[in-house]
């Protein structure tokens, strides 16, 4: 049964990489079921992430947000700050797709705090870039400029000419 769980996970990832997102969801749902049977919270957390990602490409952003929230909850329980940061970043982007910019900002700010704590300059730059765009969408140009300037500063430091 444990091997079956891993096989479902690998199958889900293969469907995903082939662009078969509906099949990926079916496999990852089976993986999730088996992870829960075993009380394997790391595998459960991975299944939530993979399901969230697949729902993004199916255009089902509300479902994606639900799975990313479960990922975030488990990342906090497992005290995995890197995964917590990644979940917040995913949620910020998902709420941008849902055009809920207030929530998008909330999650991008959470991502920014953790990226700083982990000295992740690339993550910090991405958070600032995302925040600049979200504040622009809300018409808050002062904050948009503030984050665009920080994004520029970090991009220069990283030598990211693009």
């Amino acid at each position: 049964r444990a091997a079956q769980g891993r096989a479902y996970g690998n199958l889900g990832n293969t469907h995903y990489l082939l662009g078969n997102f509906q099949n990926a969801v079916v496999s990852h749902e089976q993986r999730l079921l088996i992870a829960k049977e075993f009380g394997d919270r790391s595998a459960e957390r991975r299944a939530y992430s993979n399901l969230g990602n697949a729902f993004i490409f199916l255009g089902e952003f509300e479902m994606a947000a639900e799975y990313y929230k479960r990922t975030l909850q488990l990342a906090r329980q497992l005290k995995d700050r890197a995964v917590e940061a990644q979940s917040c970043y995913s949620l910020g982007n998902t709420y941008t797709l849902l055009q809920d910019f207030e929530k998008a900002i909330d999650y991008h700010l959470k991502h920014l705090v953790i990226a700083k704590e982990l000295s992740d300059r690339v993550g910090e730059g991405r958070a600032c870039w995302s925040l600049g765009n979200a504040y622009t969408a809300l018409g808050n140009h002062d904050q948009a400029v503030h984050f665009a300037e920080r994004h520029l500063e970090i991009s220069r430091e990283l030598g990211d000419r693009n």
Binding site: R6, G9, N10, N13, Y16, L17, A43, R46, A47, S49, N50, N53, I56, F57, Y89, S90, N93, T96, L97, Q99, R126, W129, S130, G132, N133, T136, A137
Partner: peptide, 26 residues
């Protein structure tokens, strides 16, 4: 993204490009 200005979503587009090849492995 039809209702949004491209400038507002370039960061989302970049995230999705990365996401396309991102899987949590067993």
């Amino acid at each position: 993204f039809h209702r949004m200005n491209l400038m507002q979503v370039d960061s989302v587009q970049r995230w999705m490009d990365d996401l396309m090849v991102m899987t949590e492995c067993e």
